[in-house]
Design a protein around this nucleic acid. Structure first.
Lengths: 207, 207, 207, 207
DNA sequence: CATGAATGAGAGTTCATTCAT
DNA sequence: TATGAATGAACTCTCATTCAT
């Protein structure tokens, strides 16, 4: 009846909180049980909410997973693009890509890669948002090529190589007790700039 | 119990046959549905055997998984291992790995990674064979390091990088009309040996 | 609570409108899904109203059903009743019944009986309107008997016979390319007036 | 190992018994709750069996319903055809049809027509078997016409009329405390032979 | 009164596993 | 050993209904 900051904000607040509660619970459950093993019920149980409430927010565990991934992807991508656009050398481009990516993964442990569960079964799920991120990388690579940053090479294969190294190394990094994003970024960048002979830790070739 | 040529060998034969039948069915089912989605029932259904029979051979689908892994360890991969062991240079090691992998993918189009496209979600599930192969890769890398082929570097990260590039490039390769496994292998090998500046198609650096 | 032209009439209007909105939605839903299959949710969904609002007007879908029945009792059927009441012969009574029914079916093709074809099962669900009409038919038959129009016979059986013929013939009529309601009505009327020997198309008895 | 009447007959016996148990329970449940209201779980609960067992025999309550109806229809049809083929007059034909049908309904109370449940909602489900029975009736009518038993009339409409009267009167009959199949058959036969003026109970026409 | 999110009972169904034959 | 029906726990999901706003 009188001055209120945001009418019906209590309801809205609860809705946002519940959504976040579910997402947070799902994150934990996916890490602990793995995406495939986890059930909607597991997620609900990790929550103070009733079972039906889940379905007011998501239709399935796949949708929750998408939401988690998209939340992350939407946050990472702008940072990645900005860093790459600013790059004035191939190394800067590559380094920016890996550094930003690994830093994000380290900061959001569990958001990426539905864990290495059940006897080393390896599952990776790419949402449209994540795929869009790949497409952006490829565009940026092609643009960098036309900027003269890279020579003319197979952009599709290079994109695949970057994506593959990024995701696979991210998983390896997550398996470690201490996640050193900077070390991972340096390793990947060195590999892409000069191959294995340039990798950190390299001393001399015995052959 | 009564007169028979070879009372126990007949039985042994059936036992071995049944075991093999189950393993073969499981292989197909895991490829088609993915390990996580597949159920013991699915495996039995892909078999002329009765459900109870399954439990005379395996306790769970995990156990079948292990068996497949153990079995294929004796078949496909020794050649790859041999090539890597014979490798007298880092390049030979890397080249052998990628060449064999991409050739395998090209020859077994679509079956090396079961892509269960559900609702525009892109799912990738590694088959037991491939996973086991990657475990071996890491061992070989470590051994190569101790042989002095590689310098002392982060074997876990390097394995991840190789795996990531192999998988992601394999998908890119499969999307193309003509799957040129050799070209893919050369691209990947060049990248790992000397970085992007050495990649095929490279002409000159404009910067 | 404060100054308003007609404080309560405004409210009354909304109340009546909402009630009518729900009833109209329910009618459609019952026709499309059948009474048994339809849920309160289905009715609400076919409405711009909120779920809770439903319960301000009705306690259950059964209560809506009753309301529809009561309402349509005031609309479609008086004409039919009037015709039967005016009937001064058994034939006029029977003819009026069938003619009106078949005309209604022809004019409302497909909506008088919701045929939910599930798995080659043929389901027939009577709408409230039609059911109420048949209840009236029985009353009218009994009244006609007391008026001396019909002799004293089993009113329940006769009602069932009329209903059965009406419904089953209606379906047969609908299966035909051209729906001739008048022909159907004549056939049914002749049958009820003098049996199969009097049916149209009858020429001579060969026996 | 030695002489046995029927090997593995114990298993087969149990299977048959379980199937019959479920059908019997379903029959009761359908009568008490009506087909639409009844759930698979209701049927299971009316049974000493486990929930999963139901699905070893039927896929849904619709399938159980079909089984019940088909069981009946398969029993009635041969009797009906035989009686009709023997008929040497139109009356014999009609009388045989109704007498056999009503007698069967009376003897198998509850097998026909999934009861008049929930506030007079009327549901009738015809299975393929039942529909086949209708088709047979029509064939028989056409044959009777060519035999000169009936004059040339609209066989489709007549079939519909017979079916409609039979089913609808069967329901009326079932609603009564004492089911007099013979009375029902006489009523229906008289109606079809000479119309309402010939119906039992008829005395004089007041008009 | 209207709203619409929360609730939790309960429906359908599948599954791994057992065990009498 | 092979068989395959029985079991019942557990899962996904929908629904009628309530109640704070």
């Amino acid at each position: 009846m009188d001055a209120k900051a945001s009418p019906s904000s209590r309801r809205e607040l609860t809705k946002t909180q519940n959504r976040e509660t579910i997402l947070e619970a799902a994150r934990l459950v996916f890490i602990q049980l793995g995406f495939a093993t986890a059930t909607v019920r597991d997620i609900i149980r990790a929550t103070p909410l009733a079972s039906g409430t889940f379905y007011n927010y998501f239709k399935s565990k796949e949708e929750v997973f998408q939401a988690i991934r998209d939340e992350t992807a939407l946050a990472v991508r702008p940072a990645l693009r900005a860093a790459r656009l600013k790059a004035e050398s191939a190394e800067a481009f590559i380094a920016a890509t890996f550094r930003t990516f690994f830093a994000y993964v380290a900061a959001n442990r569990g958001s990426f890669a539905a864990a290495t569960q059940t006897d080393s079964i390896h599952v990776r799920i790419d949402t449209p948002e994540v795929l869009a991120g790949f497409a952006e990388l490829r565009q940026d690579i092609e643009q960098a090529m036309s900027r003269g940053l890279f020579s003319t090479l197979d952009a599709e294969f290079l994109t695949a190589a970057v994506v593959g190294v990024a995701f696979e190394m991210a998983e390896a990094m997550q398996r470690r007790a201490t996640m050193d994003a900077e070390a991972a970024a340096q390793f990947a960048t060195a590999l892409f700039m000069a191959g294995i002979t340039a990798l950190p830790g390299h001393t001399a070739d015995a052959n």
